[in-house]
Deep mutational scan, measured.
Amino acid sequence: MASQGTKRSYEQMETDGERQNATEIRASVGKMIDGIGRFYIQMCTELKLSDYEGRLIQNSLTIERMVLSAFDERRNKYLEEHPSAGKDPKKTGGPIYKRVDRKWMRELVLYDKEEIRRIWRQANNGDDATAGLTHMMIWHSNLNDTTYQRTRALVRTGMDPRMCSLMQGSTLPRRSGAAGAAVKGVGTMVMELIRMIKRGINDRNFWRGENGRKTRSAYERMCNILKGKFQTAAQRAMMDQVRESRNPGNAEIEDLIFLARSALILRGSVAHKSCLPACVYGPAVASGYDFEKEGYSLVGIDPFKLLQNSQVYSLIRPNENPAHKSQLVWMACNSAAFEDLRVLSFIRGTKVSPRGKLSTRGVQIASNENMDAMESSTLELRSRYWAIRTRSGGNTNQQRASAGQISVQPAFSVQRNLPFDKPTIMAAFTGNTEGRTSDMRAEIIRMMEGAKPEEMSFQGRGVFELSDERAANPIVPSFDMSNEGSYFFGDNAEEYDN
């Protein structure tokens, strides 16, 4: 993207840094990872977990959730003011799984939030270390993106479920800051804005008074975040219109849905970061690795190297396929839920299948599930090659597409044709070009129609051997075009429920 120079890199967003050079960025990201790792080690000690239990991804998720809940100030305040039966607002906890007599047992633990905050700050040299908290939120978000298709949420806001490739980060909490905003897809931002506008339509006082002023500035800020994701002048001009509207209503909703559809071809720039579970960072720190000293990046080879040398386990339900569970977590670790499966298959070195073909449910185990038949197995999170994460949407291309997802959002900077089903997408653009945004709409449609099938995206960008740390010898991959490109292809993934 041309304006790259004016933006802070995501590592800076990730670490609240002012302008830093590459070495400083690597050190501050490393410091953040160190903090998460030290916190995780301490929690495993508190909970008396064995090494194996500490490497269980379900335990990692519970521990991450506990610290996120302990620092969720708004919710904590709300819980104190609106006490609900049987919930102690000062405590947080969740299921911890232990191996007892050759069987997995679930144990519900409860801790004072104050105590968890103390352990977290102690692991982070006394700081609140917001960057580390956001990092864990993005890992949870990436896992949700890989596990669930947001059909219901899309339909509720009037969008087409086939636009799911635009929904990265749709389950990120509001408090995820600049680093969170960077990884949100165009569809996620559109959905947040539509929800806001709908509230304004239904509630006369939404934009009024002292609160209304705050609401208005939040609305304009979200519009600017979305505008910054678009790469064409016409899309940005249309966002200006939406932002400046005196009284946002149905016309703005129409414009936003139009823009979301246009992003299936004229893709937005959305950041991709490899955020790993805390149970990967903990053992690495415990083994003596100093992330701050060595430096770390979320968008280069580092996460690949770390996963190459990590042992992570997962509980497996009786009829689940461990290899499929591994694929789910591998995609989440690489922030690749909406990437082209052919690119992923090449990088991973084994075939990556669409969601609907995987015999696996989510990673988390519900409290009512029976533990008797639970097994555990090693997650295979290694890769054959590594590639640089991208934040450009890439230019655009036609490809055989599917009944489910009709476009992709690249996660890796790797040369390819970008699949999208042009006739299906263009069919949504018939007729409606009147109104105050008509010239911009016409211009956007013209650009979409001009998108050429034979153009290559990320020209000359390749993948790298894991021994090639400096990215000196790019390998331009070859793809098996007979395979499906979309992950949520004609899909039956479970729906995400809060």
Rank of each mutant, 00 (worst) to 15 (best):
M1I: 04
K7R: 05
E24H: 03
E24K: 02
S28K: 00
R38F: 10
C44V: 00
G54T: 04
L61C: 13
V67Y: 10
E73C: 12
S84I: 07
A85C: 00
K90Y: 14
G94A: 07
P95R: 01
L110Y: 10
W120Y: 08
L133V: 09
M137P: 03
W139P: 14
L143D: 14
D145Y: 04
T147W: 07
Q149S: 09
R150E: 08
R150K: 13
R152K: 06
R156S: 13
M159Q: 12
D160F: 14
G169M: 06
S170P: 07
G177P: 08
A182H: 14
G185H: 01
I197H: 12
K198Y: 08
I201P: 09
W207G: 13
C223K: 12
I225G: 14
Q231R: 14
A233C: 06
A237D: 01
Q241F: 08
E244I: 06
E252P: 11
I253H: 03
D255G: 05
I257C: 09
I257N: 05
L259F: 10
R261I: 12
I265W: 12
S269M: 10
V280I: 15
G288M: 10
D290A: 13
E294M: 05
G295F: 10
G300W: 11
G300I: 11
G300C: 08
D302N: 12
K305D: 13
Y313C: 14
I316M: 02
R317A: 15
E320L: 04
A323L: 00
A332I: 13
F338Y: 01
R342W: 13
L344M: 07
T350S: 14
P354K: 08
R355S: 06
R361C: 08
I365C: 12
I365H: 09
E369N: 11
E375I: 12
R384M: 03
W386T: 11
R391N: 15
A401D: 06
S402N: 12
G404M: 13
N417C: 01
E434G: 09
D439L: 02
I444N: 15
I444E: 12
M447F: 15
M448Y: 12
A451V: 12
A451W: 05
G462K: 10
F464I: 12
G485I: 12
G485E: 08
F489E: 10
F489W: 10
D497G: 15
